[in-house]
Design a protein around this nucleic acid. Sequence first.
DNA 1: TAGATTGTTAATCGATTAACAATC
DNA 2: TAGATTGTTAATCGATTAACAATC
Lengths: 223, 223
Amino acid sequence: MEGTQERVLSAVSDLTVGRLSLYRRVLNDLIADDVPSVYSHELGKMAGVTAAQVRRDLMVVGYTGSSTRGYDVPALLESIRKFLDAPGGQGIALVGIGKLGRALMSYFAGRRPNLRIVAAFDVDPYKANRVIHGCRCYPMSEMASVVSEKGIRAAVLTVPASEAQTVADALATAGVTGILNFAPARLHMPRHVYVEYIDVTTAMETIAYFARTRATVHKGTAR
Amino acid sequence: MEGTQERVLSAVSDLTVGRLSLYRRVLNDLIADDVPSVYSHELGKMAGVTAAQVRRDLMVVGYTGSSTRGYDVPALLESIRKFLDAPGGQGIALVGIGKLGRALMSYFAGRRPNLRIVAAFDVDPYKANRVIHGCRCYPMSEMASVVSEKGIRAAVLTVPASEAQTVADALATAGVTGILNFAPARLHMPRHVYVEYIDVTTAMETIAYFARTRATVHKGTAR
DNA sequence: TAGATTGTTAATCGATTAACAATC
DNA sequence: TAGATTGTTAATCGATTAACAATC
């Protein structure tokens, strides 16, 4: 359940976009093993998705498979890349340089350009004007100018819940249209801003709940 | 899309459990402000959910509101607590003491007992036998015995994707029935093990995609 | 060809929302 | 009482899956 989403206006569902991202990683593993082509049911098995779902999702990227050989791995990867990635690469901002923020900066350091965190912000002026994991840090006061200069469209929020709405409003004003919110707070945003939530506390409580109830109620009854 | 879920066998949906966790935090804010009661539409507004959804979700915890005063905040909180939390508190294991793992240990240190990370594991023996943020670390070889001794039912996976399946299998064998998987890999688990996924890379790619397409396609057309 | 897979539509499934009698 | 809200059912909505003609 983690990761609840806002309603999508576009014709392409957020779920499809997410699965395309997943397929891409599976396909990258295949290409590393020199696998030339895959069938929808093979790709589906690796991604934990039905074959019909895979075929449906792949239709949106406009790549057509063959009924004899399935999907050509390198060509499909290129189609997904064209569909998902911004042409010149897309920088992402991170707001809130706490422990989680730093962990994310470390994780995404040196990744491909469309997922690079290119600027980080924090209210604490002591954290500004430093470089963490190759990423320049700025005080909150420079957010509007930096976001605008670097053409940043997407941002990750790792601030306390109490700050989330204020920061999100400032980001939207600065031109950000996609937000990944780790703060445990719902954001009220204009319709054109896409918001995705990752709520770790909720996810933890959910697995704890089902771990407990499944273990007692469904012990041995799974079919 | 972040956070894809396994099919749930239980009558209570994972989405409902997740929202109950969210309502609880909203209600805690209300109780801090000495608000005695709320209506479903008020709670819904704060949680980003419709009033009908709130009423439906609250039915499952067995607490009945009043048509004149709505829901009594302390009593409802107690009902949710009874429903969500394990009676004696529930320890959670964490596997993979990397940057993300450490950030999570820090975040959940000193929380209430049902969300406490009580044991951490890593393949690196150098990381074992230490205490990080109040949590004892063990080598992977002791996982089965520690999980069994502490009665751990739920676990968080912050290992590399290549290790995820092996570790998950070991956890399931040790008695874990709920897993929160941060590794970008689908897990094939027996039916009685509940798995929830948080895939940060997929979430980032999704917000990047919609940030780009919304900004161009829907500029000013949102209604 | 025969056989398996693709693209795509129709049927299914499950969750959300609307609606309303009962309640205070 | 009149009016608003609750608990709960029926209608809606959207995503997934099943099915199958077309294809190689």
